[in-house]
């Protein structure tokens, strides 16, 4: 893909003798919505961990023209890569608002100690909370939130770092149908901001509704990549992923 935002080539990762990623290529364009699917243990989370920098692997990953190899995770975030966690990880003893103030203050800023202005961060944090439907709970401790609200907070924190690419790692797992719709609406709204999204998800209904393109990983290798209807008709995908 020419002019892609993210270009991963031949990404490899071994954990001892286990090959988690055996040379995976993945490109994502600006504002593109990509579904990343595969059975458990196929390497989806390892791939996004390599992109986020929390796991170091082989191969090359470029983002927005920058080689990510020498960059630690926080520098990658500052370039515009955000990720939400499969299990929400809010700062439990802080309010919902404070959970957002931290990325607003620090992301994309090299000298956090020099940041003194408070008003703007609070205003922006409240604006993001409004978008995800958490404004009324801004003053609550994050540990008091329901599961769906924690997922919203997780996405809100990702939005607060002003990403160009958001990786949503199983953001819908364990939610009811109406809650899935709420989270999907937030993710779909990212398109309007020009933010590319990689959605890692097992729930095919949500993946099909969300994705412009689907990439399929199986045992550390990409076996398909393309429009949803094409990928799901691929015999290899049916055999390996859908079990048919």
């Amino acid at each position: 893909m020419s002019g892609a935002l993210l270009v991963a080539k031949g990404v490899t990762k071994r954990f001892g003798g286990f090959v988690a990623l055996g040379g995976v290529d993945l490109s994502v364009g600006a504002g593109e919505r990509v579904g990343l699917i595969g059975p458990n243990g196929s390497g989806k989370s390892t791939l996004v961990n390599c992109i986020a920098g929390t796991v170091r692997g082989g191969g090359s990953i470029e983002f927005d023209g920058h080689d990510l190899a020498p960059l630690p995770p926080h520098r990658r975030i500052r370039l515009g890569i955000a990720r939400s966690f499969q299990i929400p990880r809010p700062f439990a003893s802080m309010t919902v608002l404070d959970n957002l103030r931290i990325p607003l203050l620090y992301a994309a800023r090299a000298h956090p100690l020099l940041q003194r202005s408070r008003g703007r961060e609070t205003e922006e944090a409240l604006s993001i909370l409004r978008q995800v439907g958490l404004e009324a709970k801004a003053g609550r401790l994050s540990r008091e939130l329901t599961q769906v609200d924690m997922r919203k907070l997780e996405l809100a924190r990702a939005i607060a770092s002003h990403p160009k690419l958001l990786v949503a790692d199983e953001a819908l797992a364990g939610l009811s149908a109406s809650e899935v719709d709420e989270i999907l609406a937030i993710l779909l709204e990212m398109k309007g901001r020009g933010v590319a999204v990689i959605l890692i998800e097992h729930m095919m209904r949500a993946v099909l509704r969300f994705s412009e393109r689907i990439a399929v990983l199986v045992v550390g290798r990409k076996i398909a990549d393309g429009p949803a209807e094409t990928v799901l008709r691929d015999p290899a995908v049916e055999r390996a992923y859908l079990g048919q």
């Binding site: 926080h74 975030i77 809010p90 700062f91 003893s93 802080m94 931290i102 990325p103 620090y106 992301a107």
Partner: peptide, 19 residues
């Protein structure tokens, strides 16, 4: 707040752009 956050979840803090 960042000091409190680093004590709670260093990785989550790092993934918000904080060193």
């Amino acid at each position: 707040r960042a000091v409190l956050a680093v004590g709670q979840d260093q990785l989550a803090l790092q993934l918000m752009g904080v060193d």
